Amino acid sequence: MSRSTPRPEPFVSATSAAALNDLRTRLRATRWPDSPADAGWSLGVDVGYLHELVDYWADEFDWAAQESALSRHPRFRVEIGDLNIHFVHARAVSPVGPALPLVLSHGWPDSFWRYSKVVSLLTDPGAHGADPADAFDVIVPDMPGYGYSDRPTGPPLNSIDVAGLWAELMRILGYSRYGAAGGDIGSAVSRYLALDNPESVVAVHRMDAGLPVFTGDRADLSPQEQEFLDSSAAWGSTEGAYAAMHRTKPQTAAVGLTDSPAGLAAWIVEKLRGWTDCDGVIERSFSKDEILTNITLYWLTGTIGSSMRMYNANGSIPSEQHARRVEVPSGFSFFSGDLFARPPRAWLDRVANVVRIKELPRGGHFAPFVEPELYAQELRDFFRPYRKALG
């Protein structure tokens, strides 16, 4: 590593007792809203469930244990430009042949937490009943403004900007050829990483194709593609209010969500439930400890506002960027219960060089966390033919 190359430094998070005491004080002082009888989740968060969750957060949740568990994989920070980027870097265990480097990009509302259950399955497949030849070196960065990465102090970064950071991160780590995978905003980051670095990205795997952006003549689309655009627009009108707020007025929401842990929990837990195939019962997919680990990360790092601002930045990406086609071999795994409508094959072929599509019976939007074994197997199967690109 040359002297001009930034050197990653080991990172271990540490939370002060004062920060946890302040959190508990705020939780116990929550000013609760009224709720119509039997409203449940029909108007947003179920206030009764949220009250139960907040009580657990204040009196039983063991953040120290969860913080320690998050450090079971090697974590680092490195300066790229004017930002310190936090990332997991877990190398393959006893690989057979060269391990494929793989950068995993998360979305909202999460962080490196999304992949915390899948890292060992990918670095040490032989220990989990899979082929040791399918081992990966796994890199899981927190996007700027999320988790333990720095919050941009200037204009928010969009998915193209973050893809550029990931390309530099992989160069710093010494990887010239690697795979990319992600979901939600991380799907877009992975897409741009492949678009702008085709000489480095051997293949790209995505859990979704994103909400469609099309500025051409609809008459040029197949009936299935037109139906896909319409269903996506319908989803936006009924479920997309959060994204409209993030895109247009993120600072307004950030004031309340940064000040009130109960408010922050409401904003996030409603999405964890709604975007997972849990049949409406969130704890079929996430335990209270798992829910609160994700939310506590946002609370302690103060990143809810900065994470939302990325929507604003992405909303300004020019239409010609959305129209670019990924020529790098692309695979899609669609997990039942996800929030996005399933794009037809004609649409996927329009936006990417598709070599594999798989429909999965369960998993939802957070499949790497909820169904880690299923997700890990998808990555092993998809990337297996591209390991030869490493030489």
Rank of each mutant, 00 (worst) to 15 (best):
R171G: 14
S149T: 02
E168Y: 13
I185E: 11
R171F: 11
A180M: 08
R177M: 11
L195V: 10
P152G: 01
P141N: 09
V138A: 00
Y148W: 13
Y178F: 14
W166A: 13
L169E: 05
P155L: 15
W166H: 15
G183T: 07
G186C: 07
D161G: 06
P198C: 07
L165E: 05
V140L: 01
G179S: 10
A188C: 11
N197H: 14
P156I: 05
F136W: 03
Y146E: 05
L157Y: 07
D137R: 01
S159H: 14
E168D: 15
D137E: 04
G164M: 08
G145S: 05
R151Q: 14
L169Q: 06
D150Y: 00
P141Q: 05
V189C: 10
A167N: 13
T153S: 15
A188W: 14
G145N: 02
F136A: 04
G183C: 04
D142N: 07
D184A: 09
P132A: 01
R171M: 14
A194E: 01
G174P: 10
M170T: 11
D150Q: 00
G145V: 03
Y192G: 08
A194G: 10
I139V: 13
D196R: 12
A133T: 01
M143V: 11
G147Q: 02
A181Q: 13
G147W: 01
R191E: 05
M143K: 10
D131R: 04
T153C: 13
R151T: 13
N158G: 13
G174Y: 08
S159M: 15
L169V: 09
D134I: 06
G154E: 11
P152V: 01
D161A: 12
A135I: 03
G186Y: 02
P156V: 07
G164R: 06
P141H: 04
V140S: 00
Y178K: 04
G182P: 05
Y178L: 01
G164N: 09
D184K: 06
D134W: 09
M143C: 12
D196Q: 12
T153R: 15
I160W: 13
P141F: 05
G164E: 08
G164F: 06
L169Y: 07
V189L: 07
P198S: 06
W166P: 09
S187H: 13
V138F: 01
P198D: 05
I185Q: 14
I160C: 14
